[in-house]
Amino acid sequence: MQFDNVQQLLVMDGHGVYVWSAVFVSVCVLIGLIIRPLRQHRRAIKKIARELNLKKTGKLTGNSQEASDASNT
């Protein structure tokens, strides 16, 4: 390792603030890029499941187009 201890690794001769803030922001954005589609995916599945259940229990009458439009709003 280029640094003797963790303290030095964090400070990096005064450049630590810049380096670590760059790392922190980048890592947050990258994690966000994974979490966001996963949540979107789960939401979509839930929405479709709700539509299917509504149809099955017969709470909604009419064609499927109306059923999915109703749960959209």
């Binding site: 994974i34 966001r36 979509a44 299917l52």
Partner: peptide, 27 residues
């Protein structure tokens, strides 16, 4: 990331397709 975003988009766009409904019902 490209695959994950596109898969989520596919489910949203194709939610009325029968294969999507079958998939969700199976799950």
């Amino acid at each position: 990331a490209l695959i994950l975003f596109t898969r989520a988009e596919i489910l949203e766009r194709e939610r009325r397709a029968s294969w999507v409904r079958e998939l969700v019902a199976e799950k």
